[in-house]
Every structure is written in structure tokens, then in C-alpha cells.
Amino acid sequence: MRRRRNVVAGFAAFAWLLVIGVPLYALVNTAIQPESKYTDGGPVSIPSAVTLDNFRTVIHSGFLHYVWNTVLVAALTVAIVLLLGVPISYAVVRGRGWMTRGVFRLFLLGLAVPSQAVIIPLFLLINRLGLYDSLWGIALPTAAFALPVSVLVLSGGMRDISASLYEAMALDGARPARILVNLVIPLSRSSIATTCVFTALQAWNGFLFPLIMTQSNDTKLVPLGLYNFVSQYGGNVPALLAAVLMSAVPILIVYLFARRALVMGLMGAGGK
């Protein structure tokens, strides 16, 4: 039907390729040039010398420790969100009565609460709990703010499970806990995967919580590490951009092996 070639769209797409591609090329191009050479041809030239020294500099500065911290925080956050979010969604989807409806409304409302707006009381709370400058101090609030979207995604998935399956299991004498484990969780695999990726991305990209809740090098996460590199290596631009590149590697790996889950996770509620 619409097989006629769309020339205008073709040109526009090429223009957009430049918009996306040129900065990315400049990023890689600068990161692989020696510090003494990178200014020679400007960011979009063809490199005259190629080196991996910048990546070595970044690794020696303790960047891998930041990566490890970030992975830990992401794992903790995902665990908390699944542990709490799956039962909430189950109750919301299968429960009856004004209380479960109220719970769902509360989480819908929670979608609207930006973490910036409550950062001051949260800072106070984390301090009172004795969690300042610990990875828990980042993971707990990150999980709390990932919970509304997760409940939305998980309950959306659970609603798609046919009611007759629930009835069949109930007739066989299964109680809610058993139905959750044997029916709901296996059939919610894709929404659980979406939730995992979405939550992990929140933890991975989060900047505000690490900035406010931690201060020492031991608890530093990747985004904050990048921020500090700016002052630390202000002059060594290739090393700085090598760090930027390296910070994207874990997401790239997820992208290569679980593209669908990553796309769904990025979209979060937007995909529903």
C-alpha cells in the first residue's frame, strides 16, 4: 500500500543520523586519542594516534569500584522492589474491596511525586536511620520511588492472566500464596523483567540520591564518579570521555542480550 519511497523522510532521517552520530563519534574519537594529541584536529576529525591509555587511567582511578557499588545498589533496589511490588500488585489485581482500590490509587498518586521535591525530609530520614553515606541510603529511597511505576507495570501484566486460570487453581484447592507462586509469578515473567530493567536503570542513572546521601569515595556511584572526574581530571578530557564511555558498557550489555526487556524497561509506564 505505502510502498512508494518517501524521499523527504529519507533526507530527514539522514539529518537526524548526523545529529545523533556526530556527538557519539566525537565521544569515541576523543576517548581513544592520547591527551597530547586530541586537540589537534578537533572532536570530529580522524584520529592521528590511537591509544587505550585513557581507559587505563580511568580504571586506575578506582572507577571499577564505583561500577561495583552501582551494581550492588541496582541489585538491592531490584530485590526490594520485587519483594514488595509483586505482592502489592497481586493484592491490587485479585483483591476486592475499597482498601485494595485505595492502595492502587495511592501508588498512582505516587507516580507524581518527584524525588527532588522530598529530598530534604528524605535526607533527614536517612540520617536518622543511621544510613547516611551507605549504599542502603541510596537503595531504599531509589526503591521507594521506583515502586509506583513497578506496581503499574506488574499489575498491568497480572490483569492479562485469564480469570479462568485463577478459578481452576482455586477449585483444585490452591490458596492465594500458592496461586501467586505457581500461577501469577510464572505468567508475569515479562512484566517482572520489565520491572527489573526499569528499576535497575533508575539505580544506574540516579544522580540526586548519591549526591545527597553519600560523601565518601567508598560509597561512590558511577554518575557521581563522573561528576567528580570533571573537577579531578578537568584537564584530561580524553580520560573523562573514556569514563563516560565505560559508564555505558553495562547498559550496552543489557541492550545486546535483552533488547526487548531494556526497551520495555525504559518505557516503564509509558509503554502501557
Binding site: P87, Y90, A91, R94, G95, R96, M99, L147, V151
Partner: peptide
């Protein structure tokens, strides 16, 4: 059906 208790920890 699962009661609201399931949602309480979260």
C-alpha cells in the same frame, strides 16, 4: 482472594 494484607509491607 488475597487480602489487603499482601500489600501492607510495600
Amino acid at each position: 482472594r488475597p487480602g489487603v494484607a499482601w500489600a501492607i509491607p510495600g
